[in-house]
């Protein structure tokens, strides 16, 4: 069958496995990012690490080293500045992370000729995922799943009600920093396959879609993970056939599922089950407010 043909290629199979793992991890982590109202941090961190990655190349280091230092430093700086000064998180994230990205762009354009094709870092490329990348993704993914599993109660309490969590003995500042570091780890590991400029949507879109489809946290977590996996799979698959950066196709699939989720919720509202006296029925109707409507 034709659709199995790409699996003859080792790089494709590796790319698909990587995309499935990353899709699931981004979907899972995205739930906490979206509920925390910090969607911009994924966007910011993914841009920030670019500066670190380019700097690493220029001084002859593995790009993971520079990206990690830069990413983890940015995560700590964002959390600390936000906590200590009266500047909102979005402003802090915007300045620190865009500065990192700007440095990367600057270094690329001042006469240095880096050996790596930076386009794959920016937009993702299935061909650029090496065995070492795969190993890094695997380690980061296992660490992330373990963190989310054992920290779920703490994370949920901190996100929902930070002050009360502190009263009940949770080190909320430490939790914030660890969460940002884990997010930075996922961002760094996903740079090659999804690309720094597009990664934020891969983290947020599955969780935002899941949030539209359910009001239950556990279901949201499962749905977001599934949506992340499905969009990453089809995105990676499509990128092979149309020869486009994998990041762009994964993100477009994610955005499409988000659009479908919005449409589903809109239609569900239109067609809501409701009562007239004792009679329960459903049909399309215009909501005046809540469940009152006119026929």
């Amino acid at each position: 069958m034709d659709f199995l043909v790409p699996f003859q290629y080792e790089f494709f199979t590796r790319g698909i496995i990587v995309s499935l793992i990353l899709g699931a991890i981004c979907g899972m982590l995205g739930v906490y990012v979206v509920l925390r109202g910090m969607s911009y941090i994924g966007h910011g961190l993914s841009h920030a690490v670019f500066g670190g990655a380019v700097s690493s190349y220029i001084i002859g280091l593995n790009f993971y080293i520079g990206a990690s230092i830069w990413g983890f430093l940015s995560a700590i700086l964002i959390t600390e500045i936000n906590k200590r000064y009266k500047i909102k998180a979005d402003a802090v994230i915007g300045i620190i992370t865009t500065a990192g990205f700007a440095l990367g762009v600057l270094l690329m354009n001042v006469g240095y000729s880096p050996i790596k094709n930076f386009e794959s870092l920016l937009f993702g490329n299935i061909l650029s995922v090496t065995d070492f990348d795969f190993f890094i993704i695997l380690v980061v993914s296992i660490a992330t799943v373990l963190f989310l599993f054992f920290y779920q109660k703490i994370l949920l309490f901190t996100i929902f009600d930070t002050d009360t969590a502190k009263v009940y003995g949770i080190k909320t500042d430490r939790t914030d920093i660890i969460f940002s570091l884990v997010l930075a780890g996922v961002v760094i590991s996903a740079m090659n396959s999804i690309g720094v400029t597009l990664l934020a949507v891969a983290i947020i879109a599955p969780a935002a879609s899941a949030r539209l489809l359910t009001n239950n946290f556990s279901k949201m977590l499962i749905l977001s993970t599934m949506i992340g996996t499905i969009t990453a799979f089809f995105g990676m698959y499509a990128s092979f056939y149309i020869d486009a950066p994998s990041g762009s196709t994964i993100v477009l699939f994610g955005a499409a599922i988000f659009g479908v989720s919005i449409l589903y919720v809109y239609l569900k509202r239109l067609h809501h089950m409701h009562y007239h006296g004792d009679k329960k029925h459903s049909h399309s109707h215009i909501h005046v407010d809540e469940h009152r409507h006119e026929h």
Partner: peptide, 8 residues
């Protein structure tokens, strides 16, 4: 926030 009474 998507949370049930028991979870809270």
């Amino acid at each position: 926030f998507p949370i049930t009474v028991t979870e809270l």
